[in-house]
Each structure stands twice: as C-alpha cells, then as structure tokens.
Design a protein around this nucleic acid. Sequence first.
DNA 1: AAATATTTGTCCGTATGTATC
DNA 2: TGATACATACGGACAAATATT
Lengths: 227, 227
Amino acid sequence: MKNLAPKKLYRKVYDELKDYIIDNHLKPGDKLPTEMEMTKTLGVSRNVLREAIKTFEIIGVLTSKPGVGIILNKFDSNFLSSCMFLNLIEDDVNLVEQSLEVRKVLEVGFARKVFNSITDDQINSLFEIIDDMDKIVSEKEYYEMDEKFHTILYKNVSNLVLAAIIESTWEVDKGYNIDIIDSQEIRVKKHQMIAQALKDHDYIGYLDALDYHFYYSYKKKIEQLNK
Amino acid sequence: MKNLAPKKLYRKVYDELKDYIIDNHLKPGDKLPTEMEMTKTLGVSRNVLREAIKTFEIIGVLTSKPGVGIILNKFDSNFLSSCMFLNLIEDDVNLVEQSLEVRKVLEVGFARKVFNSITDDQINSLFEIIDDMDKIVSEKEYYEMDEKFHTILYKNVSNLVLAAIIESTWEVDKGYNIDIIDSQEIRVKKHQMIAQALKDHDYIGYLDALDYHFYYSYKKKIEQLNK
DNA sequence: AAATATTTGTCCGTATGTATC
DNA sequence: TGATACATACGGACAAATATT
C-alpha cells in the first residue's frame, strides 16, 4: 500500500525544517541558516523554500528580518498553540505534565456525558479493541488502538472542539511515549476497567477507572523524566 | 499610536485570504479563485500569493491540485484545530456552544487550583480591573480587560497548555461577541462576584460565580443564534 | 559617519506536470 | 487525441532593511 499522491516539494521542505528545529534543539532566539544556505543544503529553489518558511512565520513560530536572518520566536502561549497543533513540542518535562493535567480535567469533566451517551453497541466495540490490544507487537499499533478506543468513548459527546483538543494533547503524549512505562498487562487492564464500568452502568467505577488510567502513568512518567 | 513595523506583503495577503474565506462563507469543497485571478485582484506577485496560500495548505485548511484549483478542506478535527488557532471559525452555532462547553469544563476543573494559588495582591489587581471595566466605551477595551482579568486568575496555575487552550477558545467567543448580550452592569457584576468570592476565601461562592459567569451568557447566546 | 556586504522582500519569466473537456 | 486551464518548480533580478567595517 504505497502513497499514490507523492508529497509536494514545499510540504517536504516544511517537514525538513520542522525536523531541523527539533533535532538541533533550537531555543527561542536561535537563528536558522540563511535562505541561500538552505536552498543549497536542501537542493530546492528559493521560492519553494520560502513557501515553507513563511508558513512557520505566519503561524508564529519563526520571525525573519532583512539583514538579520530567521529566528525562532520566544515561547509564549501563542507560540505554544502553534507548536501543539503542529506537533512541534520540545522535550520538556513540564509540558508533558501540563498537557496530561489538561487532558485529565477534560476527560473527568466530560465523564458524565460520556457515561450517559454511550450505547451498548459501542461498549461491545470497546471490548473488541481490548481483545486486539492483547495481540499487539508494536507501539504504533497500540497508539492506534488507544486512539480508536477513546474516539468511541467521545463519539456521542459530539463536541468537535473537545475532540480537537484531546487529539492535540494526545500528540504531545505520543511524542514521549507516555504509556510505554506501563506493561502490556496494565495497559489492557486499564482499558478493561473503563469498559467494564460502562457496561455495569457504574458511574463511580468509571470515574475511578479514569483516575487510574491517568494517575498511574502520569506519576511514573514524571519520576522517570526527573531522573 | 501607529504601527511602526508595517506588515509584510505575504502577511497581508494571508489576512486577505482569511477574510475572503470567512466573508464569502466558503463551505468545505468550495473552490477559491485561481492563483492568476487572485494575483490580479490582490495586486501582488504570484510568489507572495503562494507564500500565503501554501500556509493554509500546509496547515490543513486548503488543498491545491494542478489542473483543478484550490479547495477548502473538509471539516474534521484536524481542520478544526487549525481553524481555532487561526481564528478561522465559521459562523456556527454548534461550535460556539461546544467551545463554551470546553471552556467551562476547564475553568471549573481548574477552579480549586486557582482558588488555592491566587495571592492577595492579585485579588487586588482583579478589583482594579473591575473598576476600569466601569469606564469602558468600546467592546475592544472590554475584551482586553476581560483577558487581563482571566490571565491573573490563571497565572499561578502555571499551565501553559491550559493558557493556550483558553486563549484559543477565547478567540472563538470573541468572534461572536459572546458577552455583548450582557449589559455593562451585568458584566461588571459577574467579575465582581468572582473577585469577591476569592477575597472571602469562599470556594463554593467562587464555583457559583464561575457558573453564573458562563451559564448566563451561554444560554442567551444560543437562543439568540437560534433565531 | 559613510560605504559595503549580508539577508530577506518582491517581482518577473519560463518550463513542466496534471486534470478536465 | 488534442486543447485548455491550473498548479508546481526553477532561476534571475532588483529593492529594502539591517549589520559590519
């Protein structure tokens, strides 16, 4: 199954710039190479390069000044929104912590709606996903399952804004393999608790399951990163 | 007080494209004019125009295909994230509703932290802002005050992700002048209730004030839009 | 303080590839 | 099969802003 629509050049250059910023651990205020240099190293025309650079600039990640160069912006909440939505988050313990905190508040805050709106069919689907989770080999697969699982949970809540935000915080977590610290058994068990509580129409149990789902990996991840 | 740094052309074109999409109420699947047409109507070179278009394309708002044209993407949660932080939200009752719902869950979810972390000095600042709110003439001023007010509230929570999200949902609200439906007196009163509850160290009162702050304008706005 | 080099900003022209009729 | 419409990509040129000497 290959990609039938090959990426456009400016799209590729955009990704390469992104990787450059992340891999070189650029800090706010740091300069990127000049346009001329980058056209050489990337082997593209100046036009295409600029289409990618201007994207970052308009979004608020970079600033370019004639006679000076291209600079990574300072880190404010506007910068952060851009980074979050663009999956451009730096390796920052605090951000992972904060992102998880937000996700937890949202998931707990919407728990009642999830609990009330989910159907029996959907609960069955949850169990099917859990069965598949047992046979997983790669991390990538796990994330796909996990995403499916949560998508079903929030489907009937019908809040696109919530979906968008959860997805964004998700990406932050993914970047740090938050759940990897859990063993395969624990991961499956966590999701089983959630699904079972919903099946039993046990709201308190659902809240507990949510709490368990978060708190555990959260605590351990922070400890691990602080080492 | 004039703008000392005149906007770059591609930045202006980007804004004009944004306005075009909003003002013409483009729906997913709708086509924009061709590059050539737009260079004429906007009076800019093809390069500059493309730098703006490619921003929208890379972010996931537009798709351009040779031989076809430039098309507004379909509306999914990825599209929404981009729209949210680009302030490119359509005039959609559901979105305003959903955005407010998320903001309320977040503000209530973080209420305990706000309550515990705010200092006496900050509470005094809140009252100063409320005093200024009384003398307001324009909506723009009100939004600035309101933003200041909430920034102080959440300052000590020190969660940049939360700040970024609240700011994004804020923009959605702003686009629809959510609070305009409240009279000047009610707006001031709402903020007074919040500040007073904090001053009195009355947590339940704070929750009530939050609830009042949201529920009222929320209800009325929805009614108004449904007409 | 002035001249020069550096770097981005903006424009133009041209050739190519792709979809539509 | 062509003809047309459209975006993709390249290269060159000069202007404007800033830094350097």
